[in-house]
Design a protein around this nucleic acid. Structure first.
Length: 265
DNA sequence: GCGAATGTTCGCTT
DNA sequence: CAAGCGAACATTCG
């Protein structure tokens, strides 16, 4: 489900409820989502840790412990995190429960179970390409020259360049469409055909659109808890994603749905 | 019943 | 050998 703006929203909403808490226990209801190490090692490693920070990098969330160890979470398509009282009922797709010393639990739910959770010692980052992540959308070095340097010789469609997490981290299928629409560039335009001005408009649209949707996703902890983290607020503001057959908000012509790189656009 | 779904990774073919 | 594809993962929803 989530791309960077949704992941950042989760981080902001849950952060105050996680900082300075101590983990008193871990339950793994479905070991499939634990990517590493073994479930036994995960429980042993995480129990007793003190939470020092809750960070985001691209679409990854990271719970940093005072010890230097950490948990990294990728929600993939349908993962979500909630904080609920330990007395609350668990749901069918609650796979991991991390008990906190304030009586609440951090719970990982995931209908399709495509998401992953890693526990690593001493900030190790030897998994899932996290070391190869590109710059953040708000990085000061994100500009036309950076993007050109990454893809000017590629015939890949510009849409695919935006989805490449090793170039700019955090953009997914929705926001790549929204960014290109804002920049006025066809998603199927090959990178090698992009003009200097195209690169300038993309470089400007990336932080602008991502920040716009972070702001639109803003939600209180209470409302987040009610919807169990499954409710995103971006949809009313989408210009083109999922709107095939509807009129273009810019020119009124009918938007055409097609497929690029296996993704619906 | 079929197709798609806000993501990533693997394996096969150019 | 890099790049580019489809399939796979697993479930729900329309």
């Amino acid at each position: 489900m989530p791309e960077l703006p949704e992941v950042e929203t989760v981080r902001r909403v849950l952060e105050p409820h996680l900082l300075k808490k101590t983990i008193t226990g871990v339950q793994i209801h479905n070991a499939q989502v634990i990517a590493a190490p073994t479930p036994e090692q995960f429980i042993e490693g995480v129990t007793g840790q003190h939470i020092a920070a809750f960070m985001r990098r691209g679409k990854f969330l990271r719970l940093l412990f005072e010890s230097g160890d950490n948990i990294t979470i990728h929600l993939r398509m349908t993962g979500c995190l909630t904080i609920e009282p330990q007395t609350g009922p668990t749901e069918k797709h609650t796979h991991v429960i991390i008990a906190l010393d304030d009586g609440n639990e951090l719970r990982y739910e995931d209908v399709r179970r495509l998401g992953k959770i890693w526990f690593t010692r001493n900030g190790a980052e030897d998994f899932s390409g996290i070391k190869e992540l590109g710059i953040e959308p708000f990085d000061g070095t994100l500009n036309a020259a950076y993007l050109r340097g990454k893809c000017q010789n590629s015939k890949k469609p510009v849409k695919s360049m935006l989805l490449d997490q090793s170039i700019v981290a955090g953009i997914g299928n929705i926001y790549s469409d929204e960014i290109l629409f804002a920049a006025g560039i066809r998603p199927d335009k090959p990178c090698s055909a992009l003009t200097a001005d195209d690169y300038e408009r993309i470089a400007a649209a990336i932080p602008e659109r991502i920040n716009f949707f972070i702001e639109k996703n803003e939600i209180s902890f209470e409302e987040y808890a009610l919807s169990k983290g499954k409710d995103y607020r971006n949809t009313p503001y989408l210009q083109v994603y999922g709107k095939g057959g509807e009129p273009c908000p810019a020119c009124g012509n009918t938007l055409q749905r097609t497929v690029i790189g296996g993704r619906s656009i």
